[in-house]
């Protein structure tokens, strides 16, 4: 295993760690910070892969990730949180130790699931696919277990980080057009998130998602 590959693996481990960090962090600023870190690791690993494989378009992806995930999105969220005064503790629905245990199970599951694929791949990054999948699933888990709209957004973005990581690690990146398109979509999505936060804020006076449980079939207790 080459040194770069080792570095990539370390970065993958970091990404996994940050995923868990997101899962356990109670404070919203802390969440934003961890999210930015995750973006940074992602971007670095993408750049490394680009370097190793000599695929120039991956640099662009790396740069995109850096600007979007490390700078722009955390900043937008930071501004939102400040403007809307929502830096109180993040209350999870499921308690944190339990969430962690579930997270660990998910990681093992992802590893098990990607095992046959690992056998097939020749890429240096093939081992990281398990990490990518677990990042996706952990992001998903975060969305499920958090009460506030902002934390859900962060969970969603973390999930997308996992996808990005999968794209680079499993395949050395998707074709550039796709990457660009995906990035554009995420940007628009982020804007829409912003708009939504305001809409929710103005209509409900709160960003707690329990306000938004009116539309349902189930009645009564």
């Amino acid at each position: 295993m080459t040194f770069t590959a080792q570095i990539i693996n370390v970065l993958a481990a970091c990404i996994l760690l940050t995923s868990f960090g997101l899962l356990v962090q109670r404070r919203i600023y802390g969440l934003l910070r961890i999210f930015a870190w995750q973006g940074l690791f992602l971007s670095a690993s993408t750049a490394l892969v680009a370097y190793t494989a000599g695929m120039n378009h991956l640099y662009i992806s790396a740069a995109l990730t850096l600007t979007l995930k490390v700078v722009v999105l955390p900043y937008i969220l930071y501004v939102l949180v400040n403007r809307l005064n929502i830096y109180r503790d993040v209350e999870p629905l499921v308690n944190i130790p339990a969430t962690m245990l579930i997270g660990i199970v998910l990681v093992i599951f992802s590893y098990h699931l990607t095992a046959p694929i690992r056998e097939l791949s020749t890429l240096v990054t093939r081992t990281t696919l398990a990490v990518a999948l677990s990042t996706v699933l952990l992001g998903f888990l975060m969305m499920i277990t958090r009460k506030k709209a902002v934390t859900q957004i962060i969970g969603f973005l973390a999930l997308e980080n996992g996808l990005f990581f999968a794209a680079t690690s499993a395949t050395y990146g998707m074709p550039l057009v796709i990457e660009l398109g995906v990035a554009l979509d995420i940007l628009i999505a982020a804007f829409i998130f912003g708009i939504f936060i305001f809409q929710i804020r103005t209509t409900f006076d709160s960003l707690d998602l329990k306000e938004m449980e009116k539309l349902k079939e189930h009645e009564g207790a």
Binding site: A149, L163, F204, M212, K214
Partner: peptide, 25 residues
């Protein structure tokens, strides 16, 4: 901009967003 329409849109957005993210995978 009624409360329920915002709620509906939010759910639409999050659920389809997550769903489509999985399709990307």
């Amino acid at each position: 901009r009624t409360p329920s329409s915002v709620e509906a849109a939010w759910k639409y957005f999050i659920l389809c967003g997550v769903g489509i993210a999985l399709a990307l995978f």
